[in-house]
Simulated assay, not measured.
Amino acid sequence: MLSIALAVGCGALVGFALGLIGGGGSILATPLLLYVVGIEQTHIAIGTSALAVSVNAFGNFAAHARAGHVWWRCALVFAAIGTLGALLGSTFGKAMDGERLLFLFGIVMIVVGAFMLKPRKPSGAGPQELKKTDLKTCLITGAVALVAGGVSGFFGIGGGFLIVPGLILATGMPTINAVGSSLFAVGTFGLATALNYARSGLIDWPVTALFVAGAWPAAWRGPRQRNGCPVRRTCSPRYSPC
């Protein structure tokens, strides 16, 4: 019973964080599965994490889409390009020794934490001042998507900590729209990684089910908590440059 409660509780934490900030929750999934839930093999924890995060991300994405936070063309293009990177990254990740992969994962978490502590400069740009679609914007978006997908697949994480700032950098969209749009890519990257790991039998299906069961109720709270309940529409999709 304790292991079931731990899996459900960890899933709730990941689901809430994903909905709130569009990233960060997924990077917690693998450590939680290894050190709290008790999965022993690193690759199984990564495969399980990827599938659970994918399902959680799509649940959060639905809530953001209903609130009008998603710039659809940006989300679709980013996910399509990044999925190629996720497939390549997960293939390399499976081939690497589990302990070495976990060590590199720890370094990534430290780097992400350091960037999160860095103060962010306020931006005065509004939707009317967003950049128009041009070749440079498309190239930046594609490059960021490929890198984010590769990192996501390699470590079995959603990659939202890369996708959200990447979308803001490439398109100039407001943060809330980047969060909502990123979740589609997080779900897609996770699904591609999970399918790759599932082919090698590296997913714990019962733990995945428990993780998802805990995450889905929390998934709907994340977007509401961000805006202050209830969820409201923010930026009209007609300003999307994608």
Results as ranks from 00 to 15, higher is better:
residue 1 M to D: 06
residue 2 L to E: 14
residue 3 S to V: 14
residue 4 I to M: 13
residue 6 L to G: 05
residue 9 G to Q: 10
residue 11 G to D: 04
residue 12 A to G: 11
residue 13 L to R: 05
residue 15 G to L: 04
residue 17 A to Q: 14
residue 19 G to V: 01
residue 19 G to A: 11
residue 19 G to D: 01
residue 24 G to T: 10
residue 25 G to T: 06
residue 25 G to M: 03
residue 26 S to I: 03
residue 28 L to H: 10
residue 30 T to H: 00
residue 31 P to N: 06
residue 31 P to T: 07
residue 31 P to Y: 06
residue 32 L to G: 00
residue 33 L to N: 04
residue 38 G to V: 02
residue 40 E to G: 12
residue 43 H to N: 07
residue 44 I to M: 13
residue 45 A to V: 12
residue 47 G to D: 00
residue 47 G to F: 03
residue 50 A to M: 09
residue 51 L to W: 12
residue 51 L to D: 06
residue 54 S to A: 15
residue 59 G to L: 07
residue 59 G to T: 04
residue 63 A to H: 09
residue 64 H to T: 00
residue 65 A to R: 15
residue 67 A to I: 01
residue 67 A to V: 04
residue 69 H to Y: 06
residue 71 W to A: 02
residue 72 W to M: 10
residue 74 C to A: 14
residue 77 V to D: 05
residue 78 F to C: 06
residue 81 I to R: 10
residue 85 G to H: 09
residue 86 A to L: 12
residue 88 L to Y: 14
residue 88 L to H: 13
residue 89 G to Q: 05
residue 91 T to L: 10
residue 93 G to C: 01
residue 93 G to N: 09
residue 94 K to M: 12
residue 95 A to E: 07
residue 98 G to F: 05
residue 99 E to K: 11
residue 99 E to P: 01
residue 100 R to Q: 11
residue 102 L to A: 06
residue 103 F to K: 14
residue 104 L to M: 03
residue 104 L to T: 03
residue 109 M to D: 00
residue 115 F to D: 05
residue 115 F to S: 01
residue 120 R to G: 13
residue 122 P to S: 13
residue 124 G to M: 05
residue 125 A to E: 08
residue 129 E to I: 03
residue 134 D to C: 07
residue 134 D to Y: 13
residue 135 L to F: 15
residue 136 K to D: 08
residue 137 T to R: 11
residue 138 C to F: 15
residue 138 C to S: 11
residue 142 G to P: 07
residue 143 A to I: 13
residue 146 L to T: 07
residue 146 L to V: 07
residue 149 G to M: 13
residue 149 G to L: 08
residue 150 G to D: 07
residue 150 G to N: 13
residue 154 F to L: 15
residue 157 I to L: 07
residue 157 I to W: 10
residue 158 G to M: 12
residue 159 G to Y: 08
residue 160 G to Q: 05
residue 165 P to V: 06
residue 165 P to H: 08
residue 171 T to G: 04
residue 173 M to F: 14
residue 173 M to Y: 15
residue 174 P to L: 03
residue 174 P to H: 02
residue 175 T to F: 10
residue 178 A to F: 12
residue 179 V to M: 09
residue 180 G to L: 11
residue 182 S to G: 12
residue 183 L to F: 09
residue 184 F to N: 02
residue 184 F to Y: 08
residue 187 G to N: 01
residue 191 L to P: 03
residue 195 L to Y: 11
residue 195 L to Q: 07
residue 196 N to V: 06
residue 197 Y to R: 07
residue 197 Y to C: 02
residue 198 A to M: 08
residue 199 R to G: 13
residue 200 S to L: 06
residue 200 S to H: 07
residue 201 G to F: 01
residue 202 L to M: 08
residue 204 D to W: 01
residue 205 W to P: 04
residue 210 L to T: 04
residue 213 A to K: 08
residue 213 A to P: 02
residue 214 G to Q: 07
residue 216 W to H: 06
residue 216 W to R: 02
residue 221 R to P: 05
residue 221 R to K: 15
residue 224 R to Y: 01
residue 227 N to G: 15
residue 228 G to T: 03
residue 228 G to S: 04
residue 232 R to T: 15
residue 234 T to H: 12
residue 234 T to M: 10
residue 235 C to W: 09
residue 235 C to D: 13
residue 237 P to G: 13
residue 239 Y to Q: 08
residue 240 S to W: 04
residue 241 P to V: 08
